[in-house]
């Protein structure tokens, strides 16, 4: 029963339900888009092609294109199994393990780099052995990979874990009862069904790795990657000097993102 006078007081206007949240979200979207637009207007003033053809720029691009995929692969090879165990088993100390996975995400990358230095730096036990063997873990491509893996690997663990968690364990049990061992079951059932999440995690890990700056600065200022090169260009030549490398970095990331999504046939990195 409604009160008739309440209705007759004025024509009720039906406002779109999502008006308020959409307006609030729109503010953030504008804030995201504005720097992009402002930066891209600068591209006209800088000579991108000649900026990218310098030996320093080419070296940086080459180093990034080498190290980021390697870091991503390492993160996936060790991170996906870890994600599977975390999704399937509870064990004493699991909370601690989960906290450890999150740790590189919440520690500022520069601090992470400093911590890595204390663990694998040139004068630490591990670092000195590596130097003696001719594979120094700092100021080398290996150092870049170590820094990128440390900072970026949690993404693949967290997303893959959510993916495995959404696969009903009974699907795996059915596979075992149909005659498949744990490994074949993982390959035939768990992996394909969690594929979307794993690819999303790999994508995020790659994007994070190729853009890694803070930890890389601490652990391997040399050889230069695209982000460290960009910093040096900025110090030397101001904002316009960074445009070529920044555009190249954006381009590489966008290309890899779209191709992984296309190849993996999943709708969106976040959605699922």
């Amino acid at each position: 029963m409604s009160h008739p006078e309440a209705v007759s007081g004025g024509r009720p206007i039906r406002a779109p339900e999502l008006l308020v949240p959409a307006a609030l979200g729109g503010v953030l979207l504008v804030y995201f888009a504005l720097p992009f637009a402002a930066f891209l207007t600068r591209t006209g003033t800088a000579n991108v092609v000649s900026g990218l053809s310098t030996p320093q720029a080419r070296e940086a691009i080459g180093n990034s294109l080498l190290t980021a995929p390697v870091s991503t692969a390492i993160a996936a090879v060790f991170g996906v199994p870890l994600a599977y165990v975390l999704a399937r088993r509870s064990f004493p100390g699991k909370r601690l393990v989960e906290a450890l996975v999150i740790l590189p995400l919440v520690v500022p990358p520069v601090v992470g780099g400093a911590m890595l230095l204390t663990a694998v730096g040139r004068f630490t036990p591990i670092g000195s052995v590596a130097v003696a063997l001719g594979v120094p873990l700092t100021d080398s491509l290996l150092g870049v990979v170590l820094a990128q893996t440390f900072v970026a690997a949690p993404f693949v663990v967290i997303t893959a874990r959510a993916g495995f968690g959404s696969v009903d364990e009974r699907l795996e049990q059915a596979s075992r009862s149909l005659g498949y061992g744990p490994l074949s079951t993982f390959r035939n059932v768990s992996l394909p069904l969690a594929r979307g999440s794993i690819l999303a995690g790999v994508t995020l890990t790659f994007a994070r790795a190729i853009g890694e700056f803070g930890a890389t600065m601490m652990l391997a200022y040399n050889p230069r990657t695209m982000p460290t090169r960009l910093w040096i260009d900025f110090i030397a030549g101001g904002i316009d000097a960074t445009v070529p490398i920044a555009l190249a970095l954006l381009g590489v990331t966008a290309t890899v993102l779209t191709s992984i999504q296309r190849f993996g046939r999943f709708p969106s990195v976040i959605e699922r």
Binding site: D168, R170, L171, Q173, A174, R176, S177, L178, G179, Y180, G181, V189, L193
Partner: peptide, 17 residues
């Protein structure tokens, strides 16, 4: 292990792949 037993299994909720 389950794969070494010859047991057919149907659950309450679907486990079709």
């Amino acid at each position: 292990p389950p794969e070494a037993r010859h047991v057919g299994l149907v659950f309450q909720r679907s486990t079709l792949y």
